[in-house]
């Protein structure tokens, strides 16, 4: 089975909130120099989902990682290789910067078409910077293949169909999907495995394939920010204000009445 996993390099969501900075003029988040970026945690779980399939038969299953961005840190984007993935393709160019979900999905779709043969594509359910959760479904749509979102388990069945357990509000659905298909993976899958030292050594010997827009048949002027379908009007950090008025009165009934009055004044009720 040929599997592709889309992995994004993101700002470390575990970093202290005090390190978070915005470039308000350009409606962008800024990578703080002292904090290392990471692979989006949901994407690591997508890698884990693919690895669990590969574990069953290492020779018959292949995992290709695709990451999109600019100035990608090699020791970050190579992490999936050190976990056990086989190949890494980087869509890396300044032109890819500033894209929205549509722009990213379009570039990924073009790259996957160039890869050609694939049976399963895994994505994280969403990435931790914008939390849009649209790239997976969008990519499936652009490729014209079925997708199952928010999976907690994916197993290849005899005959080649894939059984997917999909999280819903009060439990999970069990679905079967024919390949090629796209699956977005949720944290309920369980912890992604650690990179092993042997895996790191193996990964260090592999060089990523780097594709520019032209390599995937795209015009550099029509990718990234230029391909956006959505526009950010204003990006700002809300000021956290905590105000607390204590309503005090001689009797509970009086206090309740005063409270109701205050709520009405503030248009809560």
């Amino acid at each position: 089975m040929n599997m592709i996993v889309c992995c994004k390099q993101v700002l470390d969501p575990e970093a202290a909130p005090s390190t978070f900075k915005l470039d308000a003029a350009n409606n962008r988040m800024v990578q703080p120099p002292e904090i290392k970026p990471v692979v989006n945690p949901y994407d690591e779980q997508a890698v884990e989902a693919a690895l669990r399939i590969k574990d069953k038969d290492k020779a018959a299953n292949k995992i290709t990682i695709i990451s999109l961005g600019n100035n990608l840190a090699r020791d970050v984007v190579k992490k999936p290789l050190s976990m056990g993935a086989d190949e890494l393709i980087l869509l890396e160019d300044p032109a890819f910067e500033g894209g929205d979900s549509f722009a990213v999905a379009s570039a990924l779709a073009a790259a996957i078409k160039k890869v050609g043969q694939f049976d399963l594509i895994f994505c994280g359910r969403q990435e931790s910077e914008w939390d849009d959760g649209q790239v997976g479904s969008g990519l499936a749509e652009l490729l014209g293949i079925p997708s199952v979102t928010i999976a907690k388990k994916a197993e290849v069945m005899d005959g080649g169909k894939v059984k997917v357990e999909r999280i819903v509000a009060d439990g999970y659905q069990v679905l079967e999907v024919s390949t090629p298909a796209l699956i977005t993976v949720s944290n309920e899958l369980g912890e992604a495995r650690y990179a092993t030292l042997k895996g790191i050594m193996a990964a260090s010997k592999k060089q990523p394939v780097v594709w520019k827009p032209a390599d995937i048949g795209m015009d550099a002027g029509k990718v990234g920010a230029a391909a956006r379908k959505s526009k950010i009007v204003k990006l700002f950090q809300p000021v956290k204000e905590g105000k607390c008025d204590i309503v005090s009165a001689d009797s509970p009934a009086e206090a309740a009445s005063l409270l109701a009055q205050k709520l009405r004044e503030n248009k809560v009720i």
Binding site: R74, D75, K78, S82, I200, S204
Partner: peptide, 18 residues
């Protein structure tokens, strides 16, 4: 540090912390 030295640090740090 090399790429693999950085990856090693991160892998062991993740394991130790978690």
């Amino acid at each position: 540090l090399t790429e693999e030295q950085n990856l090693t640090r991160q892998a062991v740090r993740d394991f130790a912390e978690n």
